[in-house]
């Protein structure tokens, strides 16, 4: 079983991440949304609080339990496989910092395009300049995007850069509606593939 190295959430886990705000702003109330790799259901809970109809899919039992405690409807399962959802069943499918953790990222995104009109994908940017310097000078697998893990213990098994993601999108019939980037310390920045730590992309199925 591919467990992406066993996420363990506590029952009352309520981790708020920086990009939540950006995602919440994008999704209008009353939209039907699925959060793929929803973890402890915190993002889904915040969306529901905003009047959004949101459910989740999550592989870790601890995440599923924690999300259910928050009143979020969750299916336990992998997200890089065919979903039991109908074509365009949702307005938005969200995959927040999870694309890089799955064995089959291209299956995941293909399904997102099938089940929803809009897709929101966020991911840590492997080409962040400190990563580049670490590989160049130390000759080691860069660890800045691994959040405390090391080359062998990370669940980030398919890391990618902003540029890799834009190339990846060309394999699908989608257009980029909006993109945003998170920079360390500053709100706005330039050269996202070099200076941003996280990419947030909104795409629309064509």
């Amino acid at each position: 079983m591919n467990d992406n190295r066993n996420y363990k959430f506590t029952a009352n886990s309520n981790i708020k991440r920086k990009e939540f705000e950006a995602i919440i702003k994008i999704i209008p109330p009353k939209s039907r949304v699925v959060d793929l790799g929803c973890g402890d259901g915190m993002l889904a809970k915040l969306l529901i609080g905003n009047g959004v109809d949101c459910e989740g899919v999550e592989i870790s039992q601890s995440g599923v339990s924690s999300a259910k405690r928050k009143g979020v409807k969750v299916i336990k399962g992998r997200i890089d496989t065919r979903f039991p959802f109908k074509d365009k069943q949702f307005d938005y499918s969200v995959c927040n910092v999870t694309l890089q953790m799955v064995m089959f990222p291209e299956v995941l995104f293909d399904e997102m395009v099938r089940i929803s009109r809009y897709q929101i994908v966020t991911f840590p940017n492997f080409a962040f300049f400190l990563n580049r310097i670490q590989l160049l000078l130390n000759g080691k697998m860069p660890t800045f995007m691994l959040f405390g893990y090391e080359w062998y213990s990370t669940g980030h098994i398919h890391q990618l850069s902003v540029r890799d993601f834009e190339d990846f999108l060309r394999n699908y019939k989608v257009r980029i509606v909006d993109k945003d980037f998170i920079y360390p310390k500053v709100r706005y920045g330039l050269f996202p593939n070099l200076f941003s730590t996280l990419g947030i992309y909104v795409t629309e199925s064509l």
Binding site: F126, A127, L136, G139, M141, R163
Partner: peptide
């Protein structure tokens, strides 16, 4: 992974 060409691909092209 530390092979020279890998370092250049990340440094210059900004890719995995």
């Amino acid at each position: 992974f530390g092979f020279f060409d890998n370092r250049i691909d990340l440094l210059i092209n900004g890719r995995m």
